[in-house]
Computed example of a mutant assay.
Amino acid sequence: MTNAGASDARDRDATGRARNARPRDGLGRPLPYGAEGVPRQPEGVLRAPESTVAEAQELLAAGRPFHAHEVFEDAWKSGPEDERTLWRGLAQLAVGLTHAARGNAVGGARLLRRGAGAVEEWQTERGEDRPHGLDLPGLARWARELAGRVEQNGSRPVDARTEAPRLRP
């Protein structure tokens, strides 16, 4: 059953998969059709780990953690099986910062802690502190500290640019 007035037409990509073509702001929130948004990250891009980290760091530094999450998600979904926990955890950190910047304290803190736990789990299992030059101990500390501040400040949004982590020391 559809809502009265709702359209059955959906945005589709070149392969026919449903995609939301609405423009988005820097935090990934949908804007009205026709509004000027920020460029979206292409999905499904295969990148070398070095390129993934560099591109995500640029997006984080620009205050665009939602878009950095999409870069990490590509690595998570297309990378080696033994690195999926690592890339998923990094994507969760970026989404946690996104929620915190949107003023969602509960979701932001939860995802920051979940991401911290994932990168710590990967680090413990593999015994590596700096895969691909990433500062996993520093990222986990950053995420837990920010989660605490986000909870303390409630729904007051954080500035994604000034709160962005440094992925490498």
Score class of each variant (00 low, 15 high):
M1L: 03
M1P: 02
N3R: 05
A4W: 07
G5H: 03
G5M: 04
A6V: 03
A6F: 01
D8N: 04
D11G: 15
D11M: 00
D13K: 00
D13F: 00
D13Y: 00
D13C: 00
T15W: 01
G16N: 01
A21D: 02
R22M: 10
R22A: 15
R22P: 00
P23G: 13
R24S: 11
D25H: 08
G28P: 02
R29Y: 04
R29V: 15
L31P: 02
L31F: 08
L31M: 07
L31W: 05
A35L: 06
E36I: 14
G37V: 08
V38N: 05
V38S: 06
P39N: 12
P39G: 10
P39Y: 12
Q41C: 01
P42W: 00
G44C: 07
G44R: 02
R47T: 04
R47D: 04
R47W: 12
P49Y: 13
E50M: 01
A54I: 05
E55M: 11
E55V: 03
E55S: 14
A56E: 06
A56Y: 03
E58F: 00
E58H: 14
L60Q: 10
L60V: 07
G63T: 08
G63A: 06
R64T: 02
P65D: 10
H69W: 07
E70P: 01
V71K: 01
F72K: 07
F72R: 07
E73P: 00
K77R: 15
G79W: 10
G79S: 09
G79Y: 11
P80F: 04
D82M: 00
D82L: 03
E83K: 04
E83N: 03
T85G: 14
T85P: 03
L86I: 07
W87I: 06
L90M: 13
A91M: 05
A94Q: 11
A94P: 11
V95Q: 08
V95M: 09
T98K: 05
H99M: 09
H99C: 06
A100E: 04
A100F: 09
A101K: 08
R102E: 14
R102D: 10
G103H: 07
G103C: 09
G103N: 08
N104Q: 13
A105R: 03
A105Q: 01
V106E: 14
V106I: 08
A109S: 15
L111Q: 14
L112K: 09
L112D: 10
R113K: 14
G115P: 07
G115C: 10
A116C: 09
G117H: 07
G117V: 03
A118C: 02
V119I: 15
V119S: 03
E121G: 04
E125A: 15
R126E: 07
R126C: 00
R126L: 00
R126V: 02
E128R: 12
R130H: 14
P131V: 10
G133V: 10
L134E: 06
P137C: 13
P137N: 12
G138F: 07
G138C: 12
L139I: 11
A140N: 13
A140H: 11
R141N: 10
W142H: 15
W142V: 10
W142I: 11
R144H: 12
R144L: 09
L146V: 15
L146K: 08
A147E: 02
A147S: 09
G148C: 06
G148S: 09
Q152V: 05
N153Q: 12
G154D: 04
S155W: 04
S155N: 13
R156P: 00
D159F: 01
D159P: 01
A160F: 01
T162V: 14
P165Q: 13
L167Q: 08
P169H: 12
P169N: 11
